[in-house]
């Protein structure tokens, strides 16, 4: 959501810039506002949809994730294959008190698996839980 707002603001800024410096005659004066409202609205809708689609489940021996609005992606990460688990908090995330847990595998899409938008404590819990599960099902040779 925050990112959507930011994108909208940047695009509106670009629109303002275009109007200020290039000023093509066919651009009406309210264009930047329209751009902002349009993209912000779109972003909000997308963010809401994304949030509604987003889900993850910790099964007995795998982590299951589902995400994506236009392209729906479902990922299964067997615990045997987990290399390490991170919790990361970007500035925006810190601002609103959220955190993401990122799961790394040896696969070529290593960092593709992340669980965003968790409460900070929950993210740490999830990390610890995944770590325990990964250790429990540790295989001799993950690669």
């Amino acid at each position: 959501m925050g990112r959507a707002m930011l994108t909208a603001a940047i695009l509106a800024g670009v629109a303002v810039g275009i109007q200020r410096f290039i000023a093509p005659p066919w651009v009406p004066e309210w264009a930047p506002v329209a751009v902002f409202v349009g993209f912000a609205g779109l972003g909000v809708v997308l963010a809401v949809l994304r949030y509604r689609v987003w889900r993850f489940e910790v099964y007995d021996d795998s982590l299951y994730l589902e995400r994506g609005v236009l392209t729906r992606v479902r990922t299964v990460v067997p615990f045997v294959r987990i290399q390490h688990v991170d919790t990361s908090r970007s500035p925006i995330e810190r601002l609103v008190g959220l955190a993401s847990t990122v799961v790394y595998t040896a696969g070529s899409r290593g960092a593709d698996v992340s669980v965003p938008g968790l409460e900070a404590g929950d993210a740490d819990d999830l990390r610890e839980r995944l770590k325990r599960l990964a250790i429990r099902s540790e295989s001799e040779d993950a690669v």
Binding site: T71, V73, R74, T75, V76
Partner: peptide, 29 residues
């Protein structure tokens, strides 16, 4: 197998199709 990824675009969903990708640690991937 490292991870199994099931992705469906809007068009795929319209036709009830899906793409299942098998991720490995191979270098060409």
């Amino acid at each position: 197998i490292q991870t199994v990824i099931d992705a469906r675009t809007v068009f795929q969903r319209r036709l009830g199709l899906a793409t299942v990708t098998v991720d490995t640690a191979g270098s060409l991937s």
